[in-house]
């Protein structure tokens, strides 16, 4: 029998302990969402003996006209997809310029970027509110897309600039000698070679926008415009709180980012192996 060193055993036990503590609220959430609320209320979600499992909560959460998650999903997708793609495209161009070219005021512009990044969202909300109102984009998904996209620009530019700085210049020089112009180099060499970085940025920005509650709460007013995070909020009735329903709604809301991460994780690994050329 292989002997296990006490230090290894101890650290394994601690790691598992932490993992369980970490996952416990989520496990609770899943249990509550899968069982009739009355049963959870009486027995507690942790008692598994004689438990009944049902998808009622999910069905109700998805399609109840009062707080349909379906509607919220559609709105969330309408907001999140452009708010992920648009800033990445624009920021990639800006980041490439910051990384490779010299132009007047470059350093000041970059510092401005850092300052914007360090600003809390709450500070910008009132000016943004009036701005959107002036533009007649208040209570419109387009307005929220605009806000999220611009908010994403700063950190994505910063992130991608750092990544572009780390790409070997010779790769672009080889393309230049091979006859590629600036735009071709960017589109056919730099962007594809940056796919792992772009995937990380996309995952983070997507999750951020999808999970946003604050901006959505401030800038969306009519319930038919609610994104899924706001929709889940409305499930909490004024006098009655159905935890089963709320749990199902929450799981719906976090499902998309979770799936995205699961899907992209494989991709990161593949990207890292296939991309890095040995020198």
């Amino acid at each position: 029998m292989a002997r296990v060193r006490p230090a290894v055993l101890l650290s394994t036990v601690i790691a598992w302990g932490l993992a369980v503590v970490w996952a416990l609220p989520f496990i609770g959430l899943v249990m509550v969402s899968l069982r009739p609320y009355s049963e959870v209320l009486i027995k507690g979600w942790w008692s598994i003996g004689g438990a009944h499992f049902t998808l009622e909560n999910f069905k109700d959460a998805w399609s109840n006209p009062m707080y349909s998650v379906e509607r919220g999903y559609i709105n969330s997708l309408i907001v999140t997809i452009p708010s992920t793609i648009a800033p990445i495209l624009i920021a990639a161009l800006a980041a490439y310029a910051f990384s490779r070219f010299s132009f007047p005021l470059k350093n000041y512009l970059f510092i401005t970027l850092l300052v914007i990044m360090s600003m809390p969202q709450q500070m910008s909300v009132i000016p943004l509110f009036f701005m959107l109102k002036e533009l007649h984009l208040l209570d419109r998904l387009a307005g929220l897309i605009l806000v999220h996209s611009s908010w994403g620009l700063a950190w994505i530019t910063f992130f991608l600039k750092n990544f572009f700085d780390s790409l070997p210049r010779e790769m672009e020089e080889a393309a230049r000698v091979d006859g590629a112009g600036e735009l071709q180099i960017f589109l056919r060499i730099v962007l594809p070679a940056s796919l792992p970085a772009l995937a990380s940025v996309a995952a983070i920005q997507f999750t951020w926008v999808w999970s946003d509650f604050f901006y959505a709460l401030m800038f969306l007013i009519s319930p038919e415009n609610y994104v899924v995070t706001l929709q889940v909020g409305t499930m909490k009735g004024q006098y009655h709180l159905d935890w089963g329903l709320l749990s199902a709604g929450s799981i719906f809301a976090m499902l998309v980012p979770l799936l995205l991460y699961a899907g992209l994780q494989k991709y990161y690994v593949r990207g890292m192996i296939g991309w890095t050329a040995k020198g």
Binding site: E170, E173, A174, A175, V177, I189, G274
Partner: peptide
Amino acid sequence: MVFQNYALYPH
């Protein structure tokens, strides 16, 4: 040109 460190396109 052949570069000293090859400069292949990794993707």
